[in-house]
Design a protein around this nucleic acid. Structure first.
Lengths: 234, 234
DNA sequence: GTCTATAACCGGATAGAC
DNA sequence: GTCTATCCGGTTATAGAC
C-alpha cells in the first residue's frame, strides 16, 4: 500500500541523505578529518538535524559498517558455490571480504581504534555486533559444510567460530600491512590457509587422539562466557 | 658529579610530579574520566605546563606503560630462574605479567582502544613501541633458551616473536574477560600453553617435515615487513 | 514528528606573553 | 618553564517553525 508519500518518508530521505554524505566524506577524508559540522553542511541540513537521526558520529560509522558487511556476505557467495576444497574455500572467502575493504584501507585502519574499545558497539566481540558476527560465523559454518575434506567431528561445533577468529587475525594483520599491493597479507592468507588445512588433516589421523583431546579441553574451558566475551556460544 | 641542583633538575621534578599525579588519577578514575585540566590542577601546575612536559594525554599514558613494562620484566625473572619445563615457564611468565596488570584491569581495557590505533605510539606494533616490544621478545627468547625440551631448530629464530604474539592474544582475551577471578583467562593460559608445548613436541617428530616446511614458508612470507608491521625483524 | 538556527558545554590541544 | 587565553570539534540544549 502506497503511503501518503509526500511527507511520510521525508524523514527516511533526510536520514539517507545524511548517511550518504557522511560515507562519502569518511572515504575521502578519513574519520577524524570529517567533522559533524562538515557532514551537516555538505548535506544541507542543520547540525542538530544530523544528531536527530544519528545519536553520534560512531553511529553514523556503524551504519556504514552494516552496509559493508552485507556486501561482504554477498561477495563470498559465488566462491561458496564454485569451490569445494577446504583451502580454496577459506582463501576465497577471506579474499572476497578484504576486496570490499581494500578501497578504503586507511579508513578501516583509522577506525580500528574505535572498534577495539571493548565498550564500543563496533567492537567485533560486543553484544551489539552479535547479529553481524553471527551471520559471519554462520557463513564459515557453510564454508565448512560444503567442503569435501573430512574434519575431526570433535571440532565441528567450534570450527566456524575458530575460522572466523582466524579471519579476524588476518584483518588485524592487513590493517598494519603497508607492503605494496598488500602482498604480505595475501601471502599470509595463502600460506595460513594451507597450514590450517594441513593441520586439520594431520590432527585427524588415528594416533592424534591426545592432541584432539588437548584442543577440545582448551576450547571447552573457554565456553560459557559472560556477555561480551570472545567465546560466548552462538 | 653533583649538578648545581637548585634549578638544574627543577624541570625533572615538575615532570615527575605531573606524571605521578596522572598515574594516580588514571588508576582511580580511568582514562576518559581523567581530564588534562584535572591532572594539571591536582598537580598544582597550569594546563599548558602539563603539555610542555607531555605532548599529549597519550604520551602521559605511555610513560605509565613504560614503567609497568619494567615491572613486568622484573616480575618474570624468578620464574625464569626456577622453572625449566617449557610449559611451566610459559605459564609462569604470562601469569607474572598479568598479575601486574590485574589491579587496573578496567584501565587497560579502556586503553586498548588507544593502543589499537595503528598510528598511536602505544600500539604494540608501532615504531615507538619497538624498545619495549623487543625487550619483551628478548625475554621470550630467554624463556626458550632455558628450557629443557627440544625445539625444532627451523623455528628457533621465529619462536620468541611467536610466543610474544601468543601472549598478546591472551592479553586480548583477558581484556574482554569478565569471568569471576578471571578464571577463563587462566584456563586459557593453562590449556593454551599445554597445547603449544604439545604441538612443538609433535611437530618435532621425524615424519613431520612437511608440516615444519609449511610453517617455515608461512613465517618467511611475513618477514621483511615495512616499518610498523607485525613481523618486522627484531 | 521533522527540521532550523543558534548558543553553549566540555575537553584535548596550541599560541604566545611573561 | 610557566602561565593565560584561545581554538577546535563532538555533543547537548533550547526555542521555535512546519
Amino acid at each position: 500500500m502506497a503511503l501518503p508519500a509526500t511527507l511520510a518518508n521525508r524523514g527516511e530521505q533526510t536520514r539517507s541523505l545524511i548517511l550518504e554524505t557522511a560515507i562519502q566524506l569518511f572515504c575521502q577524508r578519513g574519520y577524524d578529518q570529517t567533522t559533524m559540522r562538515m557532514i551537516a553542511e555538505r548535506a544541507g541540513v542543520a547540525l542538530g538535524n544530523a544528531y536527530y537521526y544519528f545519536k553520534s558520529k560512531d553511529h553514523l560509522m556503524q551504519a556504514f559498517y552494516a552496509r559493508i558487511n552485507e556486501q561482504q556476505l554477498l561477495a563470498a557467495r559465488p566462491i561458496l558455490e564454485l569451490e569445494h576444497g577446504f583451502k580454496q574455500r577459506l582463501i576465497g572467502i577471506i579474499r572476497a571480504e578484504l576486496a570490499i575493504l581494500e578501497p578504503n584501507h586507511a579508513l578501516w585502519a583509522e577506525l580500528f581504534k574505535v572498534a577495539a574499545d571493548p565498550r564500543s558497539p563496533l567492537n567485533p566481540f560486543s553484544e551489539e555486533s552479535k547479529p553481524v558476527r553471527n551471520s559471519c560465523i554462520k557463513q564459515y559454518g557453510e564454508m565448512l559444510a560444503g567442503t569435501k575434506e573430512k574434519v575431526p567431528k570433535e571440532f565441528l561445533p567450534y570450527l566456524p567460530k575458530l575460522l572466523w577468529l582466524f579471519h579476524m587475525g588476518i584483518i588485524l594483520f592487513w590493517i598494519h600491512d603497508n607492503s605494496p599491493a598488500r602482498v604480505r597479507t595475501h601471502r599470509l592468507i595463502e600460506h595460513g590457509s594451507e597450514l590450517v588445512a594441513l593441520l586439520i588433516k594431520l590432527v585427524n589421523l588415528p594416533g592424534m587422539r591426545p592432541i584432539r583431546n588437548a584442543i577440545v579441553r582448551l576450547l571447552e574451558g573457554l565456553r560459557d562466557a559472560g556477555p561480551n566475551s570472545i567465546f560466548t556460544s552462538i
